[in-house]
C-alpha cells in the first residue's frame, strides 16, 4: 500500500513476572496509513498503551515483526530506534511531558537540537511551530506558567517540529476542558488531512467524530477495526 506507514505482523507482547505470564498484547496484525486519524480505544489495562508503545518503537515486541515504511525495524538496536523516533515519529502525551526546566520555545527546540540542527535554524523553526499552534506570545514561558491547553499545544508543536510522518498521541485531551479538547482534535485532524498518520489512544467516545478508523483493544486482543462511517451506520 502506498500510504502504509506502520505494519505489525503477528506482533505479541508478553511480560513475565516470576511464575506469572501476562499477555499485554496478543498476536496482532495491523496496518496504519498516512492521511488517516486512527483512534485506539478500550478499557484501562486492555493493552492500548502497549500497542502504542510498539507502534512508536519504544518497546520491543516479544514476537512478530514491525515494519516502518516497509523496513523491518524489529531487530533495530536502541540507538537505531531512538534515531527512528527522533526523525519519523512525534509524540503527544497525556500529561504533556514538557521538560519542566525549559521554556516553551526550548521544549520545542529540543528534538531539533537532538537532530544536531544549527542553533539559529532550530530557534526559527521552533518559533514557527509555536506560532502555528497559536502560542507566539508564550515562547519564553516555563511550562508551569502555561494552562493545560497551552501545554498540550506546546507538546503538539514539539511533536511536529521535526516534520514526522507518524504522530502518536496518548490521551491528548484527557487533561483538557471540552473547548480546548475540541481545538486540539481539530488540529490533529488537520494534520492527518495534510498527510500525517495520526494515532490517538483515548477513552473519550466523543473523539470518534474526528476519526477515520477506530481500533478496539480488549484484554490484549485487537478485536475490532471499524471504519468510522460504517460504525455510525
Amino acid at each position: 500500500m502506498d500510504n502504509e506507514i506502520v505494519r505489525l505482523e503477528g506482533v505479541e507482547k508478553i511480560y513475565q513476572t516470576g511464575d506469572t505470564t501476562i499477555t499485554a498484547l496478543a498476536k496482532t496484525n495491523l496496518t496504519l496509513e498516512s492521511h488517516k486519524l486512527t483512534l485506539i480505544m478500550g478499557p484501562s489495562g486492555s493493552g492500548k498503551t502497549t500497542l502504542l508503545s510498539i507502534i512508536g518503537c519504544i518497546i520491543y515486541p516479544t514476537s512478530g515483526r514491525v515494519f516502518y515504511k516497509n523496513n523491518n525495524v524489529t531487530n533495530y538496536n536502541e540507538n537505531q530506534l531512538a534515531y527512528l523516533r527522533l526523525h519519523e515519529i512525534g509524540f503527544v502525551f497525556q500529561q504533556f511531558n514538557l521538560i519542566e526546566p525549559l521554556t516553551a520555545l526550548e521544549n520545542v527546540m529540543q528534538p531539533l537540537l537532538l537532530q544536531k540542527e544549527e542553533r539559529e535554524n532550530v530557534r526559527e523553526r521552533a518559533t514557527q511551530a509555536l506560532l502555528s499552534v497559536g502560542l507566539g506570545d508564550r515562547l519564553h514561558n516555563l511550562p508551569k506558567k502555561l494552562s493545560g491547553g497551552q501545554k498540550q499545544r506546546v507538546a503538539i508543536a514539539r511533536a511536529l517540529v521535526t516534520n514526522p510522518t507518524l504522530i502518536l498521541c496518548d490521551e491528548p485531551t484527557a487533561s483538557l476542558d471540552s473547548k480546548s479538547a475540541r481545538e486540539i482534535m481539530l488540529e490533529l485532524k488537520q494534520l492527518a488531512s495534510s498527510g500525517k498518520a495520526v494515532i490517538i489512544v483515548t477513552h473519550d467516545l466523543r473523539l470518534r467524530e474526528f476519526a477515520d478508523y477506530t481500533i478496539y483493544v480488549e484484554e490484549g486482543h485487537v478485536s475490532t477495526e471499524i471504519k468510522n462511517e460504517e460504525y455510525y451506520k
Binding site: 526523525h87 514538557l98 519542566e100
Partner: peptide
Amino acid sequence: DRIKDYGTLKAIGATKNY
C-alpha cells in the same frame, strides 16, 4: 525528581548515551 524529563527525552529520540 527529573525522571519524567529524562524519560521524555528518551521517548522523543535522545539516546541513552545522551
